[in-house]
Design a binder for these strands. Structure first.
Lengths: 211, 211
DNA sequence: TGATTGACTGACCATCCGTTCAGCGTTCTG
DNA sequence: CAGAACGCTGAACGGATGGTCAGTCAATCA
């Protein structure tokens, strides 16, 4: 299972092109990251990119997939742990905020992909390739919330809508932090979000085991 | 103060071009609404647009201003009324959801403007022209929340962050409705949002008049 | 060491889109 | 009614950008 020299070089190229693409897209936005920009950022010629990616769409798609896989990896780990919902939420928002701090550039890419915009062609592309990634993320969180509802930790509402509300609310605050010259401690914003979430969704009265 | 014939025609042209621009931008997105598209939608020649707007930027800017002024008008009316915070929130989210239902096309324009994307030139433009509009909206809501905090109706947190969290959470659910083939009754989603908001921010224990 | 390969290059092409402007028909004006 | 004035048109222009491909050259082979 040794990798041949060519395979190593190939992987290195693919990876460095994707990293360059991520930087450029984050800096200039989805629509205005040109192939020339990306090539220059990667220190190679434009044509070289086409040796590793069929076209611009494939490059952006693969780049996005690689990046979001990292976020999913972290968040899934947190969601899988057996914790009371409040702690789970805290860990989730903490992980999300840390990830976006460490990958501030990707965060802008993420924001620009959440909502279809651009040409109708690109819209279709986003709907096929990005919307599922995003929905999968919301759905995974919604499932966690639904479990918590079944356990009586959370009052019963549409779990998908609840997940949307909380994640987008948290994203909004995370985005705000990016634009602040001196944002408050990350932990205090996590506390804020968890506070808003929990005191809104936790059943405070006596817990009834509704089974 | 009678309008001359030319003024009437001028206003009519400006307005119909803006309406066409709004429709096209909403349908195809900020970046891919071309002047040709807009002209065709308005039933005039491309060049005619330049008789009424200096360039593409000015057209989009004026269009956005006109549209968001309507939203602000409605929301401000609601926020100005003297109501307990829970009712105020309900009215706010109700107004917002109704506006976006009646102007579903504008909603997509609004979403695409919230976050700077596009060329660096466009980013700068958005930061100057759209970000203030958006921030003004959040700030107005934050002021209402701050008043409620002073009156002891809401527990004390950073009002701007709270406003962001609630508005973006609500926007996420409103957006979700747009993509659903058979969304639930509007009022039930308003209830959901208000429920999440209020039970998170209202002080439930004894009210202490902390003055 | 000379031949061969193929990764890489970057000038080039086709297309798209914002903007311009010479010319057209229509409407005022004297 | 002639001719100026004006609103409007859409072909053409220039700049930008995704994608191509003939050529280069260093590594490898025989």
């Amino acid at each position: 299972m040794v990798k041949s020299k060519e395979e190593v070089v190939q992987e290195y190229r693919v990876q460095s092109i994707q990293e360059a693409a991520m930087r450029v897209i984050s800096r200039k936005g989805m629509n205005d990251a040109t192939m020339a920009d990306i090539a220059k950022e990667a220190g190679i010629a434009k044509g070289t990119i086409y040796l590793y990616f069929r076209d611009r769409d494939e490059l952006v798609e693969k780049t996005f997939e690689t990046a979001i896989a990292q976020l999913h990896g972290r968040v899934d780990t947190v969601l899988a742990r057996d914790l009371p919902i409040e702690e789970k939420l805290r860990e989730l928002f903490r992980a999300q905020m840390a990830f976006f701090r460490e990958n501030a550039e990707f965060f802008r890419l993420y924001l620009s992909l959440r909502i279809p915009s651009g040409s109708s062609h690109q819209k279709r592309w986003q709907k096929r390739h990005c919307a599922p990634q995003y929905q999968q993320r919301i759905t995974a969180f919604a499932n966690v919330l639904e479990d918590a509802m079944k356990r009586g930790e959370v009052r019963k509402v549409d779990p998908y809508r609840l997940a949307l509300f909380l994640i987008e609310g948290a994203v909004a605050i995370t985005f705000e932090r990016l634009n602040e010259s001196a944002p408050p401690a990350e932990e205090s914003d996590v506390d804020l979000i968890v506070g808003l979430a929990v005191e809104g969704i936790v059943i405070r009265k006596q817990k009834r085991s509704t089974n």
